[in-house]
Design a protein around this nucleic acid. Structure first.
Length: 305
DNA sequence: ATCCAGGCTCCTG
DNA sequence: CAGGAGCATGGA
């Protein structure tokens, strides 16, 4: 069964720019981008659902059409799907104050050049953001994408719609049941194996609860996340920023962020964590958004070869 | 081959 | 409390 709903982003909004970003994002292995559409299968309200998003407007007058396909699509599911897409694509956030910050500084202004048309994209769930952060610890993002695929292959299911298969991220319960040796045999280190299985079991047990964390001030949520083995400050900050959409969380120790800033400001080396924090005072209130555009500058550099 | 990747834990001093 | 080893693998 398929139903459709229309979404109106805060204008202006360029959906094609969002698609282009997603095509080059290593973490986006469950998303399928065609010329004009974004497709993604996920669990919503306990159901496996396929979302298909395409543009029906212009950047100046943006309108997006969302098709929701599942065994049964009631009003609640349709509303949940719309809310999900609005959150993931930050359709409801007015970027005006951020644009004012970016315009004050030529170098960052260039990095965030198209922020007027294209806003940060959030990972589909806090759990997926947490998996991506743990997997990505200390390894390059290409290899991290390989490991994420392994997790999906080992424990995930496939949603089949009209003879087409769409991979689903395994649930915490499904991941928690993976035998450690299976991950070790597929290039996971012993530590990553323990961390991924441990946090998944904690979610099943209820000792790690994203709904509770989302209600806390960012710094409290970071502290709470860091109580779990395998979650340091960087991982906690990534979960808030990429999974919960925290607009002002800055992973100042991040190697990629330090590299991007070092290069943009011609330091001839990585910026130090302290230097990142100092620069970031200029983006106060929007440091999470700033990080998104810095990271994307690395993605664009990669695409240039 | 060597160094570095969108780090974390544990152990020293 | 700061600093460093070990983890495991791939890409440049």
């Amino acid at each position: 069964m398929t139903r459709e709903i229309e979404l109106s982003p805060v204008a202006p909004y360029d959906f094609m720019a969002a698609l282009a970003y997603l095509r080059g994002a290593h973490w986006a292995i469950l998303e399928r981008m065609t010329e004009t559409a974004y497709l993604r299968a996920l669990h919503l309200l306990g159901q496996a659902v396929l979302l298909e998003l395409r543009s029906e407007g212009t950047p100046a007058q943006p309108r997006l059409a969302l098709r929701v396909t599942a065994a049964a699509v009631d009003d609640a599911l349709l509303a949940a799907a719309a809310a999900h897409i609005r959150r993931v694509f930050t359709l409801d956030v007015d970027p005006t104050p951020f644009l004012a910050l970016a315009a004050r500084e030529p170098i960052f202004g260039a990095v965030a050049q198209d922020a007027a048309l294209f806003r940060p994209i959030i990972i589909a769930s806090p759990y997926e953001a947490l998996l991506w952060a743990i997997i990505g610890q200390q390894i390059n993002t290409t290899f991290a994408a390989t490991l994420k695929r392994v997790l999906v292959e080992l424990a995930g299911h496939t949603l089949v719609i009209d003879d087409e298969g769409f991979p689903l991220l395994p649930t915490p319960a499904e991941v928690a049941q993976i035998v450690p040796a299976a991950l070790r045999a597929r290039q996971f280190s012993g530590q990553k194996t323990a961390y991924v299985l441990g946090v998944s079991a904690a979610i099943v047990a209820g000792t790690l609860d994203f709904a509770q964390l989302a209600a806390l001030p960012a710094e409290d949520a970071i502290t709470a996340l860091m109580q779990h083995k395998g979650i340091g400050r960087w991982t906690a900050e990534c979960v808030l920023m990429r999974g919960l959409g925290a607009v002002d969380v800055l992973p100042a120790g991040d190697v990629g962020l330090r590299a991007a800033i070092g290069r943009a400001y011609a330091l001839g080396r990585h910026a130090s964590e302290t230097e990142v924090r100092e620069r970031a005072t200029a983006w106060a209130g929007w440091r999470g958004w700033a990080t998104f555009y810095w990271w994307r500058s690395l993605q664009l550099a990669r695409a240039m070869g």
